Simulated scan of single mutants.
Amino acid sequence: MSEYFSEELIAQAKETSLTQLAEYYGYHPKHVGNRLYTLVEHDSVRIYNDRTWYRWSRAGNGKESGGSQIDFLMQFCGVESVHVAIKTLLEFQGISVEDRQWKNTLNEKAAIHQAGEIKPREHAEFVLPEAMPGTYRRAYAYLIKTRGLSQQIVDYFVRDLKILYEEKEHHNLVFLGKDKDGIVRYATKRGTADIYGKKYMGDVAGNDKNYGINIVNEKSTELKVFEANIDLMSYMDIKGDFESNKLVLGMTADNPLVQFLKDHPHIKRITFCLDNDDAGMLAMFGNEEKVGLLKKYEMQGYETDTDTVPQGIGCKDWNEYLVYKKTGQDIGCTEPIENHQVEYSRKRKCR
C-alpha cells in the first residue's frame, strides 16, 4: 500500500459521521442545538454538521483546537498519525484502501458515502498497548528529567501501584484506571516526545470513561481530585501525601468522580486540586449558568475544599509548580483565581 492517500480517499474519510465515531470510541454525544453537538465527557467541545469540531480551552497553550475527524482521532482517541487516522476512518466506513472498487462496495449506485446510513457499531474493543519489556528507560527519563518528578514517585506508580508502564511500540506512557475489584477499565496514553510540535495524549480505544486513574486508601476518608495524571504525581512529590485517596478526572465531566464515590462510600471529604485556569476554576466554582463541583458535592453531604497552586508565580498546574520549585523558572502567566475563592467562601458564610 502506498504511504500516501489520494485526495479522493482523504475526502471520503472526511465524510465519516463524527458523532458515530465518538460513540464508537466510548464518548457520549449530546445534542445542544441545530446540527450542533457536544460531548458529555468534554463539554467545551462543539461538533458542527457531524463533520467538524471545535474546542476552546485555556489549558495547555491557551489556544483553540479543533478540525476534522482526523484531528478528533488524534486528539481524543489515541491515534498517533494522520496516516493511521485516515485509514481508520475509511475502515470505519467499511472501505478497504487496497480495494480499487471501494466505491462499489459502499453503494452500487452512488459514489458519495452518506455517513448517516452506516449502522451504529459496538464500541471498540478495549485492548491495552503492549508493554516495553525490561526497564522503562524512556518513561523514567521523561518523567524525571523533563517533568521534574522524583524516582521515588515514578517507582511508586510503576512498581507499587502498577498503574503506569511504557508502551513498546511508541514508548508512550500508559496510565491505568482500575475498578474496585482491581480490573483495568480505563487507560490513557501520554507521549514522551513532541509530535509535530505538540505533546501527544489520547485515551486507549474502548475504555470506560466512568473510571479514572485512582489510588484507594480505605483508612482515609478524604479524596483529592486532579485533572491530569502527572499533576497527581507532582502533587504527591511536593506534598508527600501517600495517605489520602486520589482520583484523576482526565476531562471536564465528573463521571469518574461519581463512579468512585459509588464504589468507595467511605469518602467524607473531597478536595479539588484542579488547574489554575479558566476551565479549572469554572469546574470548581461554577457560574450563574453552571453549578461548580464544590457546591454540587457539598449539596450531596460531602465536605468540600480546594487545594490549588500558589498565586502570583505564573504556574497553571501542579507539575508546573514542581518544576518551578526545582528550577525557580516562571513557566507562564495565568490569571489569579483568588476572586473565585473569596466569592465562594463569602456565599458559604452567608447561608
Rank of each mutant, 00 (worst) to 15 (best):
G202Y: 00
D203H: 11
D203F: 06
D203V: 13
D203G: 05
V204E: 00
V204H: 06
A205C: 01
G206S: 01
N207S: 12
D208E: 12
K209E: 00
K209Q: 01
N210C: 11
N210G: 15
Y211H: 14
I213K: 10
I213S: 01
N214S: 15
N214H: 08
I215E: 06
E218Q: 15
K219Y: 09
S220Q: 04
S220N: 15
T221K: 09
E222M: 15
E222R: 15
K224C: 02
A228W: 01
A228C: 08
N229D: 11
D231Y: 02
D231F: 05
D231N: 08
S234R: 07
Y235C: 06
Y235R: 04
M236K: 02
M236E: 02
D237Q: 10
D237C: 09
D237K: 07
I238Q: 07
K239R: 15
K239Y: 01
E243F: 12
S244D: 09
S244L: 05
N245H: 05
N245V: 06
K246R: 12
L247T: 11
V248S: 09
V248L: 08
V248D: 05
L249H: 00
G250P: 05
G250A: 03
M251R: 12
M251E: 04
M251V: 03
T252P: 01
T252L: 09
A253C: 06
A253P: 03
D254T: 08
N255A: 14
N255T: 13
N255F: 14
P256C: 03
L257Q: 05
V258Q: 07
Q259E: 14
Q259M: 14
F260N: 09
F260P: 12
L261Y: 03
L261W: 12
K262R: 14
K262V: 08
P265E: 11
P265H: 10
P265A: 10
H266G: 10
I267R: 04
R269Q: 09
C273M: 06
C273F: 00
C273W: 02
L274F: 14
D275N: 11
N276L: 14
N276Y: 03
D278N: 14
D278V: 13
A279V: 10
L282V: 08
L282G: 15
A283Y: 09
A283C: 13
N287V: 06
E288M: 01
K290I: 06
V291M: 12
V291G: 00
G292M: 00
G292D: 01
